[in-house]
Nucleic acid binder design. Structure first.
Length: 436
RNA sequence: GCGGGUGUAGCCAAGUGGUUAAGGCCCCGGGUUGUGGUCCCGGUAUUCGUGGGUUCGAGCCCCAUCACUCGCCCCA
């Protein structure tokens, strides 16, 4: 039984992962059930794509310049030299859900389904990052995708559904941030102009921002460094940011969305610096954040947006789409604990087969019951019943079994029912344990 | 990839250079040979994350390493 240091290490759970079990897992069940119910009501159906996909899918879908693809993917070692030569056959654990759903949409001919095609998914995602509060290497997302409709109504529905879901879950103090980032083409134009305007201040930017200036200038806008923020506060930059750089059609659609949100009385904060880190987003992007300090630094619990070019990028027919995903671990930090349901019956016995049959009849009536598996005297078995937290203890020992009798004791009060087995079961019919 | 904090049993934890490493919870066994929760007794760390060093002597000091954790970056 001695554990050598080497063995001890080999048995450790990988960094940034979690073992989920007893009381905690019931909150997961609650969240999953609530989502399933609401999504189904809204006409969404579940899809379960594989947990790994070809590496190329994520490179093309999420974008080769993104952090996720660049440094956070778990790419599986190739089994053969042949495979390792090309990324086409290489496999990667999914870092996000949308790419796989889009691939499945294309591959299964869902473009021929009646529009909109509304899908939801739930499951683990994998990113190689330094873990911290609200961020793990294996984490879980629940997400939805709506394909085929490009109208502001589709955007509004998706956002409305998210807000309704959070309302049902009892979440408070959430902020919806929203922005229109236009098409890739107008974003390109915007980047060029922004870079030109900041060119003179380049030496004053923080080191991160100097890199961002080259790789992803949009990210520069939400740098938290005070010095960088100060540079952005100049009237020239502010005026530039205030004007919408997107094409007129997009502005019009976005304004329609905003008025739909107004009608729905969904409060939003229009954040012109809101940028998302995945390449596939176009037009509408949004985030839902919580001000709760239970979350640590990662306060975004839900994020999403429109991704009109994505289906085509991945080889399907031109199909607009919009969706979001929520972070399960983050969201659950905001939810209260769910107490475990108490055990209705604990059966103390020395006739196990008969006790199992008795338990079966109790299950049939909707009760929970456990049978003591030891050969110990009644006193010890009752002790277990108490410690287990059972409401009722049944004594069902040999002589009682033979006489078709039963003793049932309410552990909180010590009151005891004693009589025939059939009479006992009949009395239970349609009653709750409390009324015993 | 970069920075801060922490490691003593399943959990909480005392211990800050000197004999066999407190205590509490949980768990297990017994007191009670067929009626519980309370109570009483007993048991569970050859060793302080791991390796090395200093010292007559190290859980305590030094070095390294690992793990966990918080933050940056980025994202859900």
């Amino acid at each position: 039984m001695k554990k050598s240091p080497a063995k001890k290490q080999a048995l450790q759970r990988p960094k940034g992962t979690q073992d989920l079990y007893t009381p905690e897992i019931s909150r997961w069940h609650h969240l999953e059930k609530t989502c399933q119910r609401i999504f189904t009501q809204y006409g969404y159906s579940e899809i379960r794509p594989p947990v790994f996909e070809s590496t190329a899918l994520f490179m093309r879908g999420v974008g080769e310049t993104t952090d996720i693809v660049n440094k956070e993917m778990y790419t599986l070692a190739s089994k053969t030299a042949e495979e390792s030569d090309s990324n086409i056959n290489t496999l990667t654990l999914r870092p996000e859900g949308t790419a796989g759903v889009v691939r499945a949409y294309i591959e299964n001919g869902m473009s021929r389904w009646q529009k909109p095609v509304k899908l939801y998914y739930m499951g683990p995602m994998f990113r190689y990052e330094r873990p911290q509060a609200g961020r793990q290497r294996q984490f879980h997302q629940i997400g939805i995708e709506s394909f085929g409709i490009d109208s502001p109504a589709a955007d509004a529905e998706v956002i409305f559904m998210a807000m309704q879901l959070f309302k049902h879950l009892g979440l408070r103090d959430l902020t919806l941030q929203i922005n229109n980032i236009g098409t890739p083409a107008c974003r390109e134009q915007f980047k060029v102009t922004l870079k030109a305007k900041l060119a003179n201040q380049l030496p004053q930017l923080c080191n991160d921002c100097k890199t961002r200036y080259e790789t992803n200038p949009l990210r520069l806008l939400d740098c938290k460094m005070p010095s960088c923020q100060a540079l952005l506060q100049t009237p020239e930059i502010q005026n530039f940011l205030a004007q919408d750089f997107t094409a007129e059609v997009e502005q019009k659609a976005f304004n329609q969305l905003l008025s739909l949100l107004d009608e729905l009385e969904i409060a939003y904060y229009r954040n012109p610096t809101l940028v998302r880190g995945l390449d596939y987003y176009t037009r509408t992007v949004f985030e839902i954040t919580s001000s709760s300090d239970a979350l640590g630094a990662q306060n975004t619990i839900c994020g999403g947006g429109r991704y009109n070019p994505l289906v085509e990028t991945l080889g399907g027919p031109e199909t607009p789409g919009i969706g979001w995903a929520l972070g399960v671990e983050r969201l659950l930090r905001l939810l209260p604990e769910i107490p475990l349901p108490p055990l209705d019956f604990y059966i103390a016995t020395d006739c196990h087969a008969r006790a199992f049959q008795l338990a079966e009849r109790l299950y049939h009536q909707g009760f929970s019951a456990e049978v003591d598996l030891t050969e110990k005297p009644a006193g010890k078995q009752l002790e277990k019943a108490s410690k287990r937290g059972a409401k009722q203890a049944i004594l069902y020992f040999q002589d009682a079994v033979q006489a078709r009798k039963i003793v049932c004791k309410t552990l909180s009060t010590g009151e005891q029912f004693s009589g025939s087995l059939d009479g006992f079961l009949e009395a239970l019919q349609g009653t709750s344990v409390k009324s015993l």
